[in-house]
Design a protein around this nucleic acid. Sequence first.
DNA 1: CGGAACGGAGAACGATCGTTCTCCGGCGCT
DNA 2: AGCGCCGGAGAACGATCGTTCTCCGTTCCG
Lengths: 235, 235
Amino acid sequence: MTVGGTAEEQARARVVDAAEELFYARGVRAVGMDAVRSAAGVSLKRLYQLFPAKDHLVEEFLRRRDHAWRAALVRHADARPTPRARLLAVFDWLYEWFAEPDFRGCAFLNCFAELGGTSPAVAEAARAHKAAVRTYLGELTAATGASEPEPLADQLALLAEGAIATAAVTGSPEPARAARAAAQALLAAAGVEGGGADGPAAHPAGPEGYEAGAAPRQAPANPRTATAHTDPASG
Amino acid sequence: MTVGGTAEEQARARVVDAAEELFYARGVRAVGMDAVRSAAGVSLKRLYQLFPAKDHLVEEFLRRRDHAWRAALVRHADARPTPRARLLAVFDWLYEWFAEPDFRGCAFLNCFAELGGTSPAVAEAARAHKAAVRTYLGELTAATGASEPEPLADQLALLAEGAIATAAVTGSPEPARAARAAAQALLAAAGVEGGGADGPAAHPAGPEGYEAGAAPRQAPANPRTATAHTDPASG
DNA sequence: CGGAACGGAGAACGATCGTTCTCCGGCGCT
DNA sequence: AGCGCCGGAGAACGATCGTTCTCCGTTCCG
């Protein structure tokens, strides 16, 4: 990890990696700059050369997380052959994410809860992230040919959001299953039916049509702690 | 507000009122004990007599919020005549709550995000609150006579949870409407249909059958900042 | 009326945190 | 070799926070 690039880029990457892990696991305010420093293995002086204030580091953390998280989601979903399968794959991906041992909910929701009341920048980052995800779901929904895709996408977004929050507090990945089932019902009610089998609901990802090519691959989806499966990058 | 009871009880109530408002608006760690002290109008000495540590105050805040929030929800929903109307009324009540000017999401989710990673007590409080809400939705769902009430209740709970989170970050109460529509679709798919009109979806509460009697009224649902409507107690 | 217990106001203390500064060893250049 | 610069390690500083302590006016009881 963090190979290539100038020394400064490597240092930045290591710092943001460390910050991401610590901030996500314990919350922003519970993590001191010194903890980031020692986890990243840089000197305090260098840390402040790279990020003149903790706020900058937090914003960079959120920026990176947004890119990596959405890229991983898109990569997983866009590998499916049909629009309906892509939508349902979103919930399969959530299941994998929830099952990761260090899953602790949505980093944006967490930061919003902690800092959104006092930091407009964090509030805006959370809002932008959620809007981007909602936009992606809107595209997937429109592609299904549903009669009214926008309200349906709103509803599917709520299911995903609720699953994330519920999985976080309960510690169980099951909410992803329930959300998937609900999404299926809502799609059916909107006239979007699956061919025969519904694809893999019981286990992670099906073997059908990976590398379908449409994935934007916007961010490198950092290989830190690279997990075996398609790496939900824990956003 | 906070009339009756011994002086100690009044002081406790004022302190928890102040803490609730401050913790909810700004987050727990962003609020010092001194801010609670001056907002509650008690001396620091008395504050520490009542709550020997900040953790105790946080836990009391969550305990009170859980009771008040669920009591307000139950009071609103149980006033409706049919099980199906009660379930949908949950989302109407969410709409009213989201529309309150100082709404900032679910206090339990916020505290979990901020402290759940380091405080097992807070994590457990959040888990218990969500479980209690889910149980209530389960009862309402079972009363509709739906064929498989438990999975359906899971899905409805996800919709409510997602609506709360989405309303918090977007600042709009609309997610409650989207969640209500989705709930209606899921109920219909489960064979639970409304008689004719769906009851009041466009505006707060219908005038039908208040004081239906089944409301547990477990907590006084503190009258602080008493809003005009049925007081969703901002949980 | 005297004194003792009590409560309020806020200073004080120790810890932590974000941020800056100092010191020092190593490296390149002449 | 001698000199100067850069980066690392970590001490230091000021602010804030949770918690405790001190001081002082009031009040209640004999």
